[in-house]
Design a protein around this nucleic acid. Structure first.
Length: 491
RNA sequence: CGGGGUGUAGCACAGCCCGGUUAGUGUGCCUGCUUUGGGAGCAGGAAGUCGCAGGUUCGAAUCCUGCCACCCCGACCA
């Protein structure tokens, strides 16, 4: 069995492979570590995109698109100034193929060598800031608040489906501001947008906080993160927002004339979430029956499965099903009536559970007679016989309840698995026995952080925002600490 | 890039150690009949360059060499 997402958790492995093949969420492609997202899985991503995009627009952003290929020279500029930013990149060196001289297949035409290599974007800072340079002259041109939906390629040493694929889909926001304060606020606003999306749409509670210096994005003055806890007790960084200061402006020479007539460098932010969120969604909620989707992100919210013996029965049932479906659509609920005769009801039940459809209705001859439907909830796996009358409004309300219920369950899980440790011994004990988030005191030094990482594999996920002051002592050095930070083993 | 593992039908695997007819099993697929309130039953059928390239041998899925791909554990990261 493919143990792809959580190698330490058998439960996912049991159904994951089925899901990949039958539900079409994704599968490894022949292209190294890239992923194939089949239509059903992509529909989930589209719902995520739409919700996020609306939130970006509400916060004053616009979408734009920049090139996939970036001349190598753009990178050398950046690499001089941004240590460690050099990614594993795919490089285009030629622009033509020709028939192989030996008559077998094709070869790269050596005469078609590019003068300057092109890099397939691993991220778009370089090309976007090179462009912003031409767009910005005056404070009147600011702020620029642009988002790009795109694919990027990072030739990672090791890939993990959804969590770290060679090619992935994401959005990257890149903003330019006249003042430091405005940029800081922007980075904080976008972190809040991500947190709200994770909690309200994905039903996944997150901890918002600051990354430590060692975990910061290369070139950022501050990196903000949302951290979620997966069901196997490991943390997943689910989104980041960076305050970049004037670093990129200086590298790419982006200056503007201020109101006072002075020449100043602009202040920048960048922020992004990726198809990693699909992995987060799977790992946060799913059970051994398959996906559990929060209704707000489910491509199909309600499925109606007819149960019948004869054609006439089917016709009668479909008539009732269509009526319910029409009523649900009026209420803005997405619904599918599966009258496909190729599969039996039991097969369909299992299939829609695998796909995480939140509500399933079954209608058979018995129900026709009694004017009832059998309603099954995916999140609780419970079934109830309900009167057909008024079922549409009941379902509409139930979907909200399921959304809230899935969130509450994930929140309860996180709270149960968030523990305080006051000594290093206790800290290690918790990590080994239970996992989850561990709140502990840290003296703020890189050395202590590194020591803990090397000895326990746990990293500081973040210094949480808005946590109460609680003076204490670093569990390693005994030096004073103002508040606890969040540790965990992570993906 | 270091360590480990796996490549055999659409998918999941057995066979390999110890070479020997026509390469199997489950599932999926096709046809027919019976079925349909939790992944249907029976009968018949189609489907394989045994990852690739060499080598050893009368004979290779099986032994040897090289290469490739994928998975897992590290280093790296959204």
């Amino acid at each position: 069995m493919a143990k792809v997402l959580t190698s330490r958790s058998e439960s996912y492995a049991q159904w994951y492979n089925d899901l990949v093949i039958k539900a079409g969420l994704a599968e490894n492609s022949a292209v190294r570590g890239c992923m194939v997202i089949k239509p059903y899985g992509y529909a989930i991503w589209e719902k995520m995109q739409r919700a996020l995009d609306d939130m970006f627009k509400e916060t004053g952003h616009q979408n734009a698109y920049f090139p996939l290929f970036i001349p190598k020279s753009y990178f050398s500029k950046e690499a001089d100034h941004v240590e460690g930013f050099a990614k594993e990149c795919a490089v285009v060196t030629h622009y033509r193929l020709k028939n192989s001289p030996d008559g077998k297949g094709v070869v790269v035409d050596p005469d078609a060598k590019l003068e300057e290599e092109l890099i397939v974007r691993p991220t778009s800072e370089t090309i976007i800031w090179s462009t912003y340079k031409n767009w910005i002259q005056s404070y009147r041109d600011l702020p620029i608040k642009i988002n790009q939906w795109a694919n990027v390629v990072r030739w990672e040493m090791r890939t993990r489906l959804f969590l770290r694929t060679a090619e992935f889909l994401w959005q990257e926001g890149h903003t330019a501001h006249a003042t430091r304060q405005e940029a800081v606020e922007e980075s904080e606003t976008m972190l809040r947008v991500y947190a709200e999306f994770a909690e309200k749409w994905m039903a996944m509670p997150v901890i918002q906080g600051y990354k430590t210096a060692s975990e910061r994005f290369a070139g950022a003055l501050e990196t903000l993160t949302i951290e979620a806890l997966m069901q196997d007790g490991k943390a997943l960084q689910s989104g980041t927002s960076h305050f970049l200061g004037q670093n990129f402006a200086k590298v790419f020479d982006v200056k503007f004339a201020s109101k006072e007539g002075k020449e100043e460098y602009v202040w920048a932010t960048s922020w992004g979430v990726s198809t990693r969120l699909m992995g987060a969604l799977v790992m946060a909620h799913s059970d051994d029956h398959g996906l559990v989707l929060p209704p707000k992100l489910a491509p199909i919210q309600v499925v109606i499965v007819p149960i019948y013996k004869k054609e006439e029965e089917l016709a009668q049932i479909v008539e009732v099903a269509d009526k319910i479906a029409a009523g649900l659509k009026q209420l803005g609920v997405s619904v599918k009536v599966d009258a496909d005769d190729n599969h039996k009801p039991g097969w369909k039940f299992a299939q829609y559970e695998l796909q995480g459809v939140p509500v399933r209705l079954a209608i058979g001859p018995r129900d026709l007679k009694n004017q009832t439907v059998e309603l099954a909830r995916r999140d609780t796996l419970t079934k109830d016989l309900m009167p057909t009358e008024g079922i549409e409004n009941y379902i509409k309300a139930l979907l909200d309840e399921i959304q809230a219920s899935i969130y509450q369950r994930a929140l309860a899980f996180r709270e149960e698995n968030t523990r305080k440790a006051d000594s290093y011994e206790e800290f290690k004990q918790i990590l080994d026995d239970q996992g989850g988030f561990v709140l502990a005191h840290w003296d703020g030094t890189d050395e202590t952080e590194l020591k803990i990482k090397e000895e326990t594999k746990a990293t500081i996920r973040c210094i949480p925002i808005g946590s109460p002051d609680e003076p204490g002592k670093c569990m390693i050095s005994g030096k004073p600490s103002q508040r606890r930070v969040v540790f965990a083993r992570a993906y």
